[in-house]
């Protein structure tokens, strides 16, 4: 049977991708950011999953215009890196896992999550930067990836608790998949940041660290955070943290925190990263 073996959360700041692509990771500004990922890069070599269900948001690259899906599941054999206005990132094509994706597409709708199925989409920095942070610059990504894009752009965004419930349903669906697969669920985006208006540049370390602290065993409190709370405390783009809750719920009730990292800033954003493992 398939099983969720671990969860990873990380910010997905586009400038981090640019720093990797342009060979700037050892520069003074960037070195502390990348140092924070060394532990997980080593750890994952011994814990390599077959498939990553990668929860991210599309930044108006493949969606958010003619259609505005709340939950969109990538159902293609492959996903090309998107051109976000200065050429596509020089990273490998992302290969999906259509059998598990088909299973998820059925199980999750049966469980009343009305997904949008994406048979074609390009993937932007929201998906490719986390892969780069964990796997560096390989010729091919070492894992299959099922993209799960969540609307955090156009109000209303799904509630924190709805994202939690989706994660719990993903856990059940993975456990019901007959093939013996190791699956990780990644939640990406965040932490506090605001990319618009006179309030741009907002960072709230107290909120962020509290979120990290509660992610292991005080998750009931995180599930109650409203969009208004995120706006007030974590900036207009801090809402991306709801995607971390999909990851966390997919791990089951008890988890162990293996690693965490927090750093301000990368470009406009507070960088957060955590690695969690389910406990029986």
């Amino acid at each position: 049977m398939a099983r969720v073996t671990a969860g990873i959360a990380t910010s997905h700041v586009p400038a981090i991708g640019a720093a990797i692509d342009l060979g700037k990771t050892q520069e003074e500004y960037w070195a502390p950011v990348f140092a924070g990922y060394e532990w997980a890069k080593e750890w994952i070599k011994g814990e390599m999953p077959d498939v990553v269900i990668l929860v991210y948001n599309d930044h108006a690259s493949a969606m958010m215009l003619d259609i505005v899906p709340t939950f969109a599941l990538g159902f293609a054999e492959e996903f090309e890196p998107a051109d976000e206005g200065w050429g596509a990132r020089p990273v490998p094509t992302v290969y999906g896992h259509t059998e598990l994706a088909a299973h998820l597409a059925e199980q999750l709708v049966i469980d009343e999550f009305d997904l949008t199925i994406m048979n074609h989409m390009d993937v932007d920095h929201g998906l490719t930067v986390p892969l780069s942070l964990l796997f560096g610059q390989p010729e091919q990504w070492p894992v299959r990836v099922i993209p799960l894009a969540i609307n955090v752009t156009q109000f209303p965004t799904p509630s924190a608790d709805r994202c939690w419930q989706l994660g719990a349903a993903i856990r059940d669906a993975v456990a019901a998949f007959p093939e013996d697969l190791k699956v990780q669920v990644w939640g990406t985006g965040g932490m506090s940041h605001q990319l618009q208006g006179p309030r741009a540049g907002l960072i709230n370390p107290e909120f962020d660290v509290s979120f990290l602290d509660k992610l292991t065993d005080q998750t009931d409190e995180l599930r109650k955070i409203t969009r208004l709370d995120f706006l007030r405390e974590a900036g207009s783009e801090g809402i991306e943290l709801i995607m971390w809750l999909v990851m966390r719920a997919a791990l089951g009730e008890k988890v162990e925190e293996l690693h965490r990292f927090y750093h301000v800033p990368a470009s406009n954003t507070a960088v957060g990263h955590i690695v969690l493992k389910p406990r029986d």
Partner: peptide, 30 residues
């Protein structure tokens, strides 16, 4: 060819250098 930081910072009352310095110093407190 602008960085995201330059685009975002242009919406504040700061110069690009002032905005970059604020971010390096920990960002804008809430």
């Amino acid at each position: 060819g602008w960085s995201a930081q330059r685009a975002v910072g242009s919406m504040t009352d700061m110069t690009p250098d002032e905005y970059a310095a604020m971010m390096r110093a920990g960002g804008r407190p809430p």
